[in-house]
Simulated scan of single mutants.
Amino acid sequence: MEHDIAWPGSVRPGGRTARVREAVLEVAGDVLADRGFAQLDLAEVAAGAGVGKTTVYRRWRTPAGLVADLLVDMAEQSLPRADTGTLLDDLTANARLVAKTLADPRQGNLFRAVIAAAAGDELTATALHTFYDTRLAEWAPCVEDAVVRGEAPVGTDPRAVLSAVSAPLYYRLLASGDPIDQDAADRSARAAALATVAGTFVS
């Protein structure tokens, strides 16, 4: 479930439409991270991005529509999966990227806000599920390759494995408040790898 966002230095398509979208989504992400979904106002976002509010209302219509597009953009900008040659190392790379994302003040707050919004808004929830579907599909070959190499049993469910890697880290973000650090990431990866080898995730 890797989703480290490659905002700095990202290569985006050119053109005015792309520049408008980039500016609006950057401001929307800042507002979400700083104040949460309830304070996401399209007119304020338009002003912050230097864009006419009519343009923002016409393209995104509602705060939920803006969040949905932000999640699409985040999926598009996410870093590709690791391919280290071993299951444990691939899952460790995955866990470390998740931990890096969630421990980042801006990105961690942004995910808290989006997850909270998804709990009460169907459009946001669908966009959030699509975001994770995209990331799980990107990383599924790590598990599929491990099956081919004989590291994992035939029938292992990649989605279940990758969810097991990230779940403890999200628990720390959303529930316990325990540190989300490299040690936590590495333990999560080791636990998921051991469970995978044991056949826990064979469907």
Rank of each mutant, 00 (worst) to 15 (best):
V20K: 04
V27Q: 08
T84N: 10
V27R: 10
P158Q: 02
A49I: 06
G48L: 08
F131L: 11
D181M: 03
F37I: 09
E2L: 03
L194E: 15
A119S: 12
L174D: 11
G15N: 06
A140L: 06
A193L: 06
L66S: 02
L173C: 12
A95V: 04
L32N: 06
L194G: 03
V161I: 05
S203Q: 10
A189M: 08
D69W: 06
T200Y: 09
R96D: 14
W60D: 13
L91N: 08
R58L: 14
L40R: 03
A185W: 01
G177N: 07
T62Y: 11
L174S: 07
L123N: 04
E26L: 13
P179T: 03
M1T: 06
V27C: 11
E76D: 14
R190G: 07
H129W: 09
A137I: 02
T92Q: 14
D178R: 07
P8K: 02
K100Q: 10
G177V: 10
T62L: 11
F37M: 12
V20I: 10
A127N: 11
A82Q: 08
V154N: 05
N109E: 14
A164C: 01
R112F: 00
G199R: 02
L128G: 01
L110Q: 14
Y132Q: 09
V154D: 13
V148F: 03
F37N: 10
A191S: 09
D178E: 15
T196V: 04
A93E: 13
V114G: 05
S10F: 03
V154R: 11
S10W: 00
L194R: 04
L66R: 05
V31N: 12
L169K: 05
A117P: 12
I180R: 02
A164H: 01
A23L: 09
T86Y: 05
T156F: 05
H3T: 06
G150F: 03
Y132S: 08
D41N: 13
A164K: 00
G15L: 07
A18I: 01
D69L: 11
E138H: 04
A167H: 07
A117D: 11
P63L: 09
A46H: 01
Q107D: 15
A46T: 03
L87Q: 08
K53Q: 14
P13G: 10
E22K: 01
G48V: 05
